[in-house]
Design a protein around this nucleic acid. Structure first.
Length: 154
DNA sequence: GCCAACGTTGGC
DNA sequence: GCCAACGTTGGC
């Protein structure tokens, strides 16, 4: 079992949007970065857990935990002319982009801000990709030790 | 294969 | 809104 972090702009799709979804589930579509795609397509397994992270907002941070409930399948939004994630280079015969399904496990009791995470950038979380400068990856693995540590942060 | 131009991400 | 970082594109 592996751990992940998934970014979403709350103005686009927030954890409350997920909570309000049918089965508290959604397909994680719109990822258009190859490194992130490779994680989704090749490495995410059913049962893996992921932090739900709110990015590009007033107070970025980890807001909840989701479970991967279905492994990779083609991203339909890439085929849809009317979707903002439409990609003419993705063909049904050779899909370029993939999604997984995720289901809400729970929101964190206390919103864990990026600022709070940064307090540990020098020691316990020194390897956390999220805290590296210039980090723009929207899907990234979290080491088990980092996952455990993050859950202990008050 | 190089690299400049451009677009996007995301924190602040 | 600004700007640094980074990925992608396209001419050569």
């Amino acid at each position: 079992m592996r751990y992940w972090l998934l970014k979403s702009e709350p103005g686009d799709f927030s954890i409350d949007d997920l909570a309000a979804s049918e089965n508290q589930s959604t397909c994680w579509d719109g990822v258009r970065n190859y490194q992130a795609r490779n994680f989704i397509r090749n490495e995410m397994k059913k049962g893996d857990l992921a932090f739900f992270y709110h990015s590009s907002c007033a107070e970025p941070g980890i807001t909840g935990i989701v479970e991967i409930t279905r492994e990779a399948y083609p991203d339909e939004t890439a085929f849809d002319h009317n979707d903002k994630h439409f990609d003419p280079k993705s063909q049904r015969s050779d899909p370029r982009w993939y999604v997984v399904d995720v289901q809400l496990k729970h929101k964190l009791e206390k919103y864990l801000t990026l600022a709070k995470l940064r307090q540990h950038a020098g020691d316990s979380l020194s390897a956390l990709q999220l805290l590296k400068r210039g980090n723009r990856l929207s899907v990234m693995p979290i080491a088990p030790d980092d996952w455990k540590f993050i859950l202990t942060i008050d």
